[in-house]
Amino acid sequence: MGLYSGSLTFFRLFYDENITYSLSEISENLLEYSFDRFYDSSRPVNYGFVPLNYPDYADFTSSEILFDNAYVFSVRIDEKKINKKYFDIKFQEMKKEFLEQNKKDFLSKSDKEFIKNALTNKMFAETLPNTSLVEIIWEMDERQVFVSNIASKSFEAVVHLFRVAFDLNLYRDSLIESARKNISEHYKIDDLKNVTPANF
């Protein structure tokens, strides 16, 4: 699915910053904010850049990122969810064990917090993630980025990564934004905002 084969559905994001990067700068930043660099098995959500042809190519050292006039890569997002019922059962078991091991009659608030955190970290480390890959086409000349998924989690991950890695603030396309980008006469956009609904 995506740019190599299958559906070509992409959504557009814009940014206003007038910043340009060279190919080597982009490669360095993609590597610095790559998925493997920041992966932490105890975290519920992990994300970072990966090459387009991931996992055939695991990192950016041997993978193409410049295709014609655009930079193309992906964002890998791993999300783990813990079943609440299962967590509650394990929490009760751990509390009992803690009381026995520490020969205590009751648990203080900090004991409960400690057990809860230990259990959360343990369960996140043991749980398999739901993995998704969001393909990115970055056209620097046009200050626009196409993304293959715009669901809130994907959108947030892509926006965050572009902010920290490239100092760019991405925002969603809309009719007004598209008009603003393509029409140089600003009064036309103001006029458009003042029209009343048509009577077809």
Binding site: L3, Y4, L8, F10, R12, L52, N53, E64, F67, D68, A70, V72, I137, E139, F146
Partner: peptide, 16 residues
């Protein structure tokens, strides 16, 4: 591979 990506990227661009 590269030509394929460029070609399909062109379709995306044409649509937008």
């Amino acid at each position: 591979y590269v030509d394929k990506i460029i070609e399909r990227k062109l379709y995306v661009r044409t649509v937008f």
